[in-house]
């Protein structure tokens, strides 16, 4: 199975589109290496702005460019983008309604060995709770490409969080169901629903298969659109299955699990259980080790569902 980091796909799409549209501008904060923007910056030096290690200025400059007609794509580690430059995202992007797409790279525990400074375990809560900011966590290269192409078509602010590592494909080339702000049902099922986002979808999909072998019919939903969240998909799952399990690379407070639970509680109360990171600095390690430790991988999902059913 192909393994490509989602940042590579964004870089490729922007190289292609910037050649056709001079208003596309990419900005980074000494993060061109970690964002995989080397090729873009070489291909389109006049549509590339290096801001240095200054995340506040990074977002504000992007907003100023957008106010003058540019389509700004901002790349910085999600940990810094969602905290150091949070007020800039709130005021200069969301509140001023500028055409800025904030791309949080190396999100979640991608930098798993580097400590809490480099973890973005609460960026969903921060960004999604800000009026005017959309939040997306795509899972694989195909969905990431579709998402970025869709975002190039609109003028509204958005925050996109991706991981650092190469990830397995969830979808197949040429068969990528995608409608902006609509969740994707990867596998239908009637006993339980697993709702995952970002690079947790890979594990959720695998768990769906494993549960089949155990005779459990699991619906697997890819909720890449955290905000606006696909309420319809949640309500349907809440009505049609006995349990919803959410999985996210984020603390359990204020993220996907909280949002799914809120929608379910208001519309079709059903038990909602969340898997995610703890309310403490995540344990050090590689992403896969961390997911396994906190029971967020396929095995952990299967175990949790088996306990609950």
């Amino acid at each position: 199975m192909n393994k490509i980091a989602n940042k590579t796909i964004i870089n490729n799409v922007l190289i292609e589109e910037a050649a056709k549209d001079k208003n596309i501008v990419v900005l980074c904060s000494d993060s061109r290496g970690s964002a995989g923007l080397g090729p873009y910056s070489k291909e389109h030096p006049k549509q590339f702005v290096e801001v240095g290690i200054a995340e506040q200025n990074l977002v504000t400059i992007a907003a100023g460019l957008a106010a003058c007609g540019k389509k700004s794509f901002v790349f910085s580690p999600a940990s810094f983008l969602s905290t150091r430059s949070m007020e800039q995202a709130k005021v200069d992007v969301a509140y001023s309604h500028t055409n800025v797409k904030l791309i949080g790279i190396s999100g979640g525990v991608s930098y798993g060995e580097l400590g809490m400074t480099h973890q973005s375990a609460n960026d969903i809560a921060i960004m999604a709770s800000t009026p005017g900011l959309r939040v997306y966590l795509p899972c694989d290269r195909f969905q990431t490409e579709k998402l970025i192409r869709a975002l190039l078509q609109d003028k509204d602010p958005a925050y996109v969080r991706i991981g650092r590592n190469a990830v397995e494909d969830v979808y197949e080339e040429g068969n990528v169901p995608f409608e902006l702000n609509k969740a994707v049902t990867i596998q239908d099922g009637s006993d339980v629903t697993i709702i995952a986002c970002g690079e947790m979808v890979q594990g959720a999909k695998a768990a769906g298969e494993l549960l089949k072998d155990k005779g459990i019919s699991a619906r697997v939903i890819d909720m890449y659109c955290i905000k606006p969240i696909d309420k319809e998909a949640i309500i349907k799952a809440a009505k049609e299955t006995k349990l919803i399990l959410t999985v996210e690379e984020h603390v359990k407070l204020g993220g996907l699990g909280s949002m799914v639970a809120q929608v379910a509680a208001e519309n079709a109360p059903v038990k909602v259980v969340s898997l995610g990171l703890p309310d403490e600095p995540a344990i050090a390690g590689k992403s896969a080790q961390i997911f396994k430790y906190y029971g967020m991988d396929a095995e952990g999902i299967v175990k949790k569902i088996s306990e609950l059913l």
Partner: peptide, 14 residues
């Protein structure tokens, strides 16, 4: 001022 920097950069680009 950061907004102004972005606006001025856009002017230079175009």
């Amino acid at each position: 001022l950061g907004v102004g920097v972005g606006m001025a950069l856009a002017g230079k680009m175009d």
